[in-house]
């Protein structure tokens, strides 16, 4: 029952579903991202209640000592029903947490939902603390974090240390999502070293690897003719690549990408520079989902094949989507994460 409620909360009062999870909804009454983007840290690590939707989105590519690959996800979504509202139980803020661990043959997912205003979930900027129930992502500052999450069949406890600076996407953090100008504030910390323990049904596994944390908030991140996106965060030998393509109802795509050099210097690419084409599809949770891609960014000589470690990384949550670790081969070798939404 409650699993059905959260998508309802993402809908504006009058509209039917628009775009993926209602993200194409009107921004009436909410603040909207403006250019130029001016950030104020650490307070911008905290929530922006006057925007409709916001997330703290961490993915990690991990390896056990024997080289076995794992993927990990820790996400906290904030959704506001109205731009301003009551306190306590009447608060219009709602929180949704997703945690997952992906192995080569299994995918563990769990979800938490919470009302704002009562302390069950929230984020504070300084000291940084993001939590929902017993899940936490906390640290004295944004560079050194502890992270826990737990479900009925898995748990993890991780330590993160940033090895590089925060990077900004689009125009210094103002990330345009459509030709019509919909945009979000979007920055990342892609340089975390991560290590810790995964608790899985077969026992605890010590792992280490690299994590990528996305921060994004907006009130209308998609235009109403966009049905979903395919998003890549790839760690390649000589740099990192964030690229996405937004699928539009007319069959065209809107793409955007950021090339991140090891020292954190970024190059933003406009629509059309980055391309991703499905190579093969698999059937997951009754849907046909592409889990093998050809990803190109000619300007950087990138022409790679991206392959899911586990095709079945389906997030069977209130808002369902595909999210899982990938390996990269071709002109560049590496690992990364793939997120695909809006596959119905």
């Amino acid at each position: 029952m409650n699993a059905r409620i959260f998508p309802l909360l993402l809908l504006p009062v009058t509209a039917s579903a628009q775009g993926f999870a209602g993200l194409g909804a009107d921004s009436d009454g909410f603040s909207t991202p403006q250019e130029p983007a001016i950030f104020d840290f650490p307070s911008d690590h905290g929530p922006h209640d006057d925007y409709r939707i916001e997330w703290w989105y961490l993915t990690a590519n991990l390896e056990a000592e024997d080289g076995t690959p794992y993927g990990l996800q820790w996400t906290l979504f904030r959704s506001a029903l109205t731009p301003n509202g009551g306190e306590g139980w009447s608060s219009p803020q709602f929180w949704m947490g997703h945690a997952a661990v992906t192995t080569t043959d299994e995918h563990f997912v769990t979800e938490r939902l919470a009302r704002g205003g009562i302390g069950q979930a929230g984020v504070t900027a300084e000291p940084f603390e993001a939590w929902i129930d017993d899940w936490q992502l906390t640290g004295l500052d944004f560079d050194t974090l502890q992270m826990t999450a737990s479900g009925p069949d898995f748990a993890y406890d991780m330590a993160l240390n940033a090895q590089g600076p925060i990077v900004f996407h689009g125009a210094d953090g103002y990330s345009v999502k459509s030709a019509a100008g919909q945009a979000s504030y979007y920055y990342s910390q892609p340089f975390y070293d991560i290590q810790g323990t995964l608790s899985l049904p077969d026992g605890d596994v010590a792992v280490r690897g690299q994590a990528w944390l996305d921060r994004e908030w907006s009130s209308q991140p998609l235009s109403d003719d966009q049905t979903g996106w395919d998003w890549f965060s790839l760690s390649l030998g000589d740099g990192k690549l964030m690229g996405f393509r937004l699928r539009q109802t007319d069959g065209t795509f809107y793409t955007s990408a950021t090339w991140i050099e090891p020292d954190g210097v970024t190059t933003a690419y406009p629509d059309g520079a980055f391309d991703a084409q499905p190579l093969s599809r698999v059937s997951v949770a009754g849907r046909s989902v592409p889990t093998q891609w050809r990803v190109t960014l000619p300007d950087r000589g990138v022409d790679v094949t991206v392959q899911a470690i586990n095709d079945a990384a389906w997030m069977d949550t209130s808002v369902p989507y595909w999210e899982g670790p990938v390996t990269v081969t071709g002109t560049h070798d590496g690992v990364g994460y793939l997120e695909m939404t809006g596959y119905e």
Partner: peptide, 27 residues
Amino acid sequence: LDALTSPGGIAPVGLNDGAMTIDMLTA
């Protein structure tokens, strides 16, 4: 009850109506 955390929602009231759900939770 809290529809978000209750294992049974607020059954037997079916919450299929977004507007109603928002009203219930906020107003």
